[in-house]
Simulated assay, not measured.
Amino acid sequence: MTLSLEWIGMLAGFLTTFAFVPQVIRVYRTRSTHDISLPMYSIFVTGVGLWLYYGWLIGSRPIVLFNAITFVLAGAVLVMKLRFR
């Protein structure tokens, strides 16, 4: 992969991954998950886990790095959704 393509992947991964940070902070502070869909987050976390595995299989640093972080962030929201019911 060319360096410029990898940087595009890194920027895209950064932006889409860190979009979850405000949601994680809000849920943690308010302990409110009423408006969060359990099925959506369950499916999403599973999909991100599969993207992470795919990225590892093909050796793509941007896919592995940002899907690992997204998995943790979205997984945290999912865990809080289950815990704060």
Rank of each mutant, 00 (worst) to 15 (best):
S4D: 15
V24N: 12
P22Q: 02
A19G: 02
P39C: 11
L52Y: 06
D35C: 08
P62V: 01
Y41M: 15
F84Q: 04
L3I: 11
Y53W: 11
V24G: 07
L65W: 00
T46P: 13
F66S: 00
I69Y: 03
V21Y: 02
R31I: 08
G49K: 10
P22H: 02
V27E: 09
R61C: 04
L5S: 11
M80Q: 12
F66K: 00
Y41D: 06
S4Q: 11
V21K: 10
A68W: 03
V48W: 09
V27H: 12
V45S: 12
T70P: 05
P22L: 00
M10H: 10
R26C: 05
H34L: 14
D35T: 07
I43Y: 14
F44R: 13
I8S: 01
M1F: 11
G47H: 14
I63M: 02
E6G: 04
L78R: 15
F18Q: 04
G59A: 05
L57D: 11
T30Y: 10
W56E: 03
V45L: 13
V77P: 11
G47E: 14
Y28Q: 10
V48Y: 07
A76V: 13
V64D: 00
W56K: 05
F44M: 15
W56R: 10
G47K: 09
L57E: 10
L38P: 14
H34W: 09
V79Q: 08
F18I: 01
G9H: 03
L11C: 08
F71M: 11
I36C: 11
L82H: 08
A68R: 01
V64Y: 00
F66Y: 00
S60E: 04
A76P: 12
G55I: 00
G13Y: 05
V64P: 02
A74T: 13
D35S: 13
S37V: 11
G75W: 11
Q23P: 03
S37W: 12
S4L: 09
P22R: 01
V24T: 05
V48H: 12
R83G: 06
P39Q: 09
T16V: 08
R31P: 08
R26T: 11
I69S: 01
F20P: 02
W7D: 01
Y28F: 14
S42T: 15
A68E: 04
F20V: 02
T70G: 04
G47S: 15
I69R: 05
L11G: 07
L38Y: 08
F84R: 12
V77F: 10
T70Y: 02
F66H: 00
F18L: 02
G59P: 07
S4G: 05
V21G: 02
V21L: 06
L50A: 10
I69M: 03
M10S: 02
V64K: 00
W56F: 09
V24K: 11
E6S: 08
N67W: 01
R29D: 07
S37F: 08
W56Q: 08
V64T: 01
V27C: 14
L3Y: 13
A12R: 05
G59K: 09
F44N: 14
G55V: 02
G55L: 00
M10E: 04
L57I: 06
R26Q: 10
L50S: 13
L15V: 13
I36K: 11
Q23W: 01
P39A: 13
Y41C: 07
P62E: 00
T30E: 07
I58L: 00
I43G: 08
P39D: 15
W7T: 06
G13S: 07
W56N: 06
W7K: 02
F84G: 03
F66I: 00
